[in-house]
Amino acid sequence: MTDSARPTRWTDHQVEQVIGRLLQFGVLLATIVVVVGMTGLLATHSGPAADHRVFVGVAPELRSLGAILHGAFAGHPEAITQLGLVLLIATPIARVALTLVAFVVQRDRLYIGLTALVLALLLWGLLRG
């Protein structure tokens, strides 16, 4: 049975099934991207590993979404690895977004409000920091 053949309002259980798949997909995709970046990192890196005893913060190119995407598409292994990590951070955020869609479909006003608040806080953290 396809989704369109089902009653238009999702049940909580159906929503949870879709969410479960989304989370699995997110982790898998993030892992693949991290492994690609890691392979590049290990292949191109020479000499001793950097010292991380003292905090200076990672390079600015690896701190914002735009810069990371730019670096990843230019083929920089560090940026690709960081993109994989960002995809992982985005996975639970995507789950909240999907939950919001489900509450909109269910026309559950109270939970549309609460979920939108959580989503806004998460997006603010990821995009503006």
């Binding site: 950097a50 990672v58 701190r63 914002s64 560090e78 690895t81 953290g125 990821l126 920091g129």
Partner: peptide, 18 residues
Amino acid sequence: AASAGVYLHRGYIVPTIA
């Protein structure tokens, strides 16, 4: 994910360690 987003901007997330 909430704090990881903030820490990404602060440079706490180093790919070679993470």
